[in-house]
Simulated assay, not measured.
Amino acid sequence: MNIAVIGMGAVGMFVAHHLARIGLDVTGYVRREEQRIELEKNGIQLDGERIHIPVYSYTDLSAQHDYHIIATKKTANETLYPYFKKLNASSYLVFIQNGITNAQELRNLQAKVFIGVFDHGITRYGNDKIQQKGAGRLSLGSLGDEQEASVNKFVTQIDDPKFPVFFEKNIQSRQAEKMVINCVINPLTALFECFNGEILKNPYLKQLAKKLNEEACQALNIPTEEMWQRTLAICEKTARNKSSMLADIQSGKRTEIDYLNGYLVNHFPGNVPTHETITLLVKAKEIIHKD
């Protein structure tokens, strides 16, 4: 089985490292030439263990892979979709991204599509080093019943005790639940430039977080209190972690705010006022840090 992992951020490097470790044929693809050179030279280092895989630029994406795992931020999809549209019906695209994936977004793709929800806590250091801060799981599913057998087969092929992978029949519910957590933790830590645990310590941040959780759960029809307790648990478990949105702000990159809180604003207008304000604040901060 030949697998492409597109995007060598924390998630992409973690997935590529584990798939290569269990003996699969893995190729990495990156946006930046600087990272490509370092990964080719040094390999991917996870908790001190290095594994080398071939690494190429996005511009060299090949259709010869059996599976394409997309581990980029959603902001990269605008660049990558023209390539995805060229893949035929025998190809598989596995999206492991934040936010919610819907059928409308995938309407022009011939390739079969799997959806993944990644729950491990991973931190990236530089271009080639990652550290696992919290153990989780990768859940995979599809948007339609017709792909369930194919998803199950893929899960069986890549599941490993050190990298547990599960089939999830209702993957969209899992995506929605993770989205609520991201819509609470990511923007608040980005705006106030703090670790995740600060949401638990600061009573005003915690109040904001609870309001964001309440609005998101009502919009997505998710039990509010149950989700709030899960979000608090994640804040505690990842107390010393820096969110991906904070990392983007600090490095002057575009954030995923449009695909998280902004998604709720666009799909549930008038029902998520706190998310609307938070979205505007993050976008304003993007401009300040970019300048």
Rank of each mutant, 00 (worst) to 15 (best):
G270Y: 02
E49Q: 00
V55D: 06
G141H: 09
N186H: 10
T72W: 03
A247D: 06
Y56Q: 14
T101C: 13
L212E: 09
T274D: 03
Q175H: 06
D160I: 07
G23N: 11
T189Q: 03
T277A: 14
K178F: 04
E78R: 13
E146Q: 08
K73A: 10
R31C: 04
G197C: 08
I6V: 14
G43F: 03
L280D: 13
N127T: 01
Q218S: 09
I181R: 08
G262L: 03
N88K: 14
C235I: 12
G262M: 02
T123K: 13
E33H: 09
E215R: 10
P187T: 08
T123C: 09
K41L: 14
Q229Y: 11
L205G: 12
C217S: 09
Y92K: 10
Y81C: 02
I115L: 05
H52Q: 07
I70L: 11
G99Y: 12
T231G: 03
L46R: 01
F167Y: 15
K283A: 01
F114T: 02
P164T: 08
N102C: 13
L220A: 06
V26Y: 09
A4G: 11
E214M: 14
A89I: 12
F192S: 08
A71V: 07
T79C: 09
L80N: 10
L208W: 15
E226P: 08
I185K: 03
E226W: 15
E214C: 11
D60G: 02
N77C: 03
L106D: 04
L61S: 04
Q35D: 00
N266D: 11
Y125K: 05
L138G: 01
M1F: 10
Q250F: 06
D66I: 07
R174T: 13
I53G: 05
N98I: 07
K153V: 13
I44W: 05
T277E: 11
Q218L: 15
L220D: 06
A16Q: 05
P269R: 01
I37Y: 05
N271A: 08
T72F: 08
T224L: 13
A190W: 04
G9M: 13
K290H: 08
A149C: 00
K290E: 04
E193H: 13
R36D: 00
V282C: 05
L61E: 06
P82A: 11
N2I: 07
E225D: 14
Q45K: 02
F95S: 01
I181S: 09
I6P: 02
L205T: 12
L260S: 07
Q64P: 00
V11P: 02
L138S: 01
C235L: 09
D159L: 04
Q250T: 12
T101A: 14
F268S: 02
A4P: 02
E78P: 03
P82L: 13
E198R: 15
N266W: 04
A135H: 02
L39R: 05
L39E: 03
R137M: 08
A247C: 07
S90I: 10
Y204V: 15
E177T: 02
K201D: 08
P273L: 06
V117C: 06
